[in-house]
Design a protein around this nucleic acid. Structure first.
Lengths: 214, 214
DNA sequence: CAAATAGTGTCTCTAAGACACTATCAT
DNA sequence: ATGATAGTGTCTTAGAGACACTATTTG
């Protein structure tokens, strides 16, 4: 009975949620795109194993979040392998460097239904189910914790935050209501600074509030 | 690397959420109250293992719901054991028959903080954490699925349903709002019948709506 | 009729969606 | 000044909480 962790590394690119798939270097499904995963070592916590997988495949060291275990008897043809699913959120820019033919960003919509590239074959194992469960978890978690801020850089504008919410939820969000809700939630702390790169009126930059006020 | 499932068997008794703890028959923590659990067999799905554990310890065959995996390296002193946590919901009456000195119902509040009986020692392993996570999961799930109806018999009154919600959430619920919300949700189907046992005005009996209307 | 619970009407308040407006900055 | 985006005010609507009321059944 072996235990692995599978990492669902998510990012927002072109206003759509994408998942990082990597080409398998081992049988089965050798050469196919799949979720990166590692076997859990005997002296390693599950979270540490997930972070190790993310570091190895995406080159970043970020917080991870467990969302479910997958253990159907025949999910892996080799042997009985139980996998714990983890989500890792990364800013798209930080992922761009590692992308190549073996490391591809695929829209979650496509990954869940069809295959990894184009309308190709479906993902191996139960990876499509795992991605679907991860997406569902993240959508529910958007408003209940601060984990989802991992999809943004340290400082961000409210517009960018709204875009992230829209990408994860898959639908438009009402601007005034969104701004009021987030600003009143106490999760955001305004830096004095403004967004410099824009071509028009610069937006206020915010960061995640440090847990201070009581 | 071994994999177990731990079952958090919950029920509502005396308007409070209780968890079923069983006296361990093996080392370590032999003789102490703990969550019932079993090792996952090689040819057995995780859900099936959880149902097997519930059937063995509570004598009932009910739906189970996975909520999280627990895999800290030293959570079990014997060896590296990863446990998948499952919730099972049972009507208190059906549990009454199996209760004895080795099968005790303990309020979740007490089980999470102190020990299994009285203000006794803490639960072994990370079982207090597991119960806390289960409680948290169920509270969040109350309004999003129909799973929580497992805490009630097939037919129930709105008053009983409200009591269940109050027990899980740990706080009073507004009656008119609760009734309107639940009746409008389409999750309930009114049977023509009334509650017979009561001493005063009999209440309408409802059951979970079968997924028909589209 | 008295008691006790079942079920509802009303008022208020909060939050969200729709829409349009004002504010600000780059060019 | 123009254009495009940042940010806000207002109106409406939906839903929850508070409170009190009516309705129904048993004894």
């Amino acid at each position: 009975m072996a235990v692995t962790v599978d990492a669902v590394i998510l990012t927002v690119r072109d206003d759509a949620l994408h998942v990082l798939l990597t080409r398998r270097r081992d049988a089965p499904a050798l050469g196919e795109l799949a979720l990166p995963g590692v076997f859990v070592r005997a002296d390693e916590d599950l979270d540490d194993a997930a972070r190790r997988a993310v570091r190895a495949k995406a080159g970043v060291d970020v917080a991870v979040r467990q969302f479910r275990a997958f253990g159907a008897v025949h999910r892996d043809p080799r042997a009985r392998i139980i996998s714990i699913g983890f989500i890792a959120l990364v800013v798209a820019d930080r992922l761009a460097e590692v992308l190549d033919d073996d490391h591809r960003l695929v829209p979650v919509e496509r990954a869940m239904s069809g295959g990894g590239s184009g309308e190709g074959p479906a993902l191996p194992f139960d990876h499509a189910d795992i991605i679907q469960a991860a997406h569902s978890y993240l959508r529910a978690d958007l408003d209940t914790s601060a984990f989802s801020f991992g999809l943004l850089p340290d400082e961000f504008t409210l517009r960018e935050l709204q875009k992230v919410h829209e990408a994860v939820r898959g639908e438009r969000v009402n601007k005034p209501a969104f701004r009021k809700r987030l600003l009143d939630s106490g999760k955001l702390a305004g830096t004095g600074r403004r967004d410099v790169g824009g071509k028009y009126r610069p937006a206020e930059l915010y960061r995640v509030a440090t847990e201070t006020a009581a």
